[in-house]
């Protein structure tokens, strides 16, 4: 099946075809939800944030410039929403590990791989929220350094450096977990 380009979908949304929002939702919900989940470790909150992301996509689609790419714009809405949520709540100061446990789909992965994923999850938990957010933007949302820089109000080079340092920190934590 040929996938209709995001920009065409958004143009239709701008012209009032709200059903199109469903297509965009299906396309990006998993990535965005998982970004929220990785950062907040809270299923309910992540669901709420996912919902609000697409409400905002609908609300602000009229101001979207079709010469730009839709995917980074949607991800930026999600990331900004998370930032707003951080500002208004202290709930990410300490992670409530009882809220989310890592689910392993045993039929798809070997035990070794499952263990590796679990270790990575634990290590991500121990990163500070800012670094966790940066890493997730980089590898999960696959945002460009330019988009990360715009979201975090820094230069593109700085965004590169922050991603690198967050990865290094994650590596250190993993090493400690293995000891």
């Amino acid at each position: 099946m040929i996938e209709v380009k995001d920009e065409i979908l958004l143009d239709r949304l701008k012209n009032g075809d709200i059903e199109i929002l469903g297509t965009l939702y299906e396309r990006y919900k998993k990535q965005i939800f998982n970004h929220f989940l990785r950062c907040t470790r809270d299923y309910d909150l992540s669901n709420d944030l996912l919902m609000e992301t697409f409400e905002r996509v609908y609300k602000y689609c009229h101001s979207f410039n079709l010469s730009k790419k839709v995917r980074p714009w949607i991800f930026q809405i999600a990331v900004n929403l998370l930032k707003d949520t951080y500002k208004t709540s202290n709930r990410f100061e300490s992670i409530d590990k009882t809220k989310v446990t890592y689910t392993i789909e045993a039929q798809d992965t070997s035990i070794d791989e499952s263990y590796k994923h679990k270790q990575l999850y634990n290590a991500l938990d121990q990163l500070d929220p800012y670094q966790r957010n940066i890493i997730s933007m980089y590898y999960l949302l696959e945002m460009s350094y330019e988009d990360i820089a715009t979201t975090e109000n820094m230069s593109i080079n700085n965004a590169r450096i922050k991603v690198c340092r967050s990865l290094k920190k994650l590596k250190e934590i993993l090493k400690d977990l293995e000891l």
């Binding site: 380009k5 920009e7 065409i8 143009d11 079709l66 010469s67 330019e146």
Partner: peptide, 14 residues
């Protein structure tokens, strides 16, 4: 050069 819905987008490379 890209055309979307009767709009021609001309974008310079980064």
């Amino acid at each position: 050069f890209e055309v979307l819905k009767k709009k021609l987008f001309i974008t310079a490379r980064t």
